[in-house]
């Protein structure tokens, strides 16, 4: 039996099992949003907690645990992708793209698989900020810490990402299948 994490913010416990119980779900969801592959998401989540088990004691501020975990997962993701090029930074000025309008009926038809498929079509640079925006109630400051980019850039990327996501959702067919979920 596995416990479920909730998004409430009780006092932070650094006990390993407590942290896993509290964050493994949202970390997995973030990982899955990035990789779109269940096995990779499992690996990233496990790797994140492994890093915590070996290096977590170095964290002095217990209130930073959440962003530390998401930062670690994102870093592991980037490392696994061996990205050579840095993402360009944008300042929030204007989201030039016209915001698409999605009908309430379409909204009600959405499911996680469709949302993730739509996210996969969003520019890669926007995927992580958008996922963090929706999955965990991280502040923009925390998202900036996780992604190691300025807060203005975070807002810019989220705004652009949401716009692209909505566009993508409009194009997503309702016949899409959800990916199979098992963790080996």
């Amino acid at each position: 039996m596995s416990p479920t994490d909730d998004n409430a913010e009780p006092s932070v416990s650094l006990d390993f099992e407590s942290l896993v119980a509290r964050y493994y779900r949202s970390l997995y969801q973030f990982a899955f949003s990035l990789t779109q592959a269940e096995a990779d998401a499992c690996d990233l989540t496990q790797q994140t907690f492994y890093v915590w088990a070996t290096k977590g004691h170095q964290l002095r501020d217990a209130t930073k645990v959440k962003s530390w975990l998401f930062t670690t997962l994102h870093r592991e993701f980037l490392e696994s992708r061996r990205r050579q090029t840095r993402f360009p930074h944008y300042e929030l000025d204007q989201v030039n793209e016209e915001l698409p309008s999605i009908s309430p009926a379409r909204v009600n038809q959405l499911d996680s698989a469709q949302v993730l498929q739509a996210l996969a079509r969003v520019d890669e640079v926007y995927q992580a900020p958008v996922a963090l925006f929706y999955i965990e109630d991280l502040s923009y400051k925390e998202i900036a810490e996780v992604l190691n980019i300025p807060m203005g850039t975070v807002k810019s990327r989220i705004a652009r990402g949401i716009a692209q996501l909505q566009k993508s959702l409009m194009a997503t067919g309702s016949s899409d299948q959800a990916p199979k979920q098992t963790c080996e």
Binding site: N7, R25, Y28, Q29, E38, L110, S112, V115, Y134
Partner: peptide, 8 residues
């Protein structure tokens, strides 16, 4: 929908 992503 993001928060309903099924965890294995």
């Amino acid at each position: 929908n993001f928060r309903q992503i099924a965890v294995p």
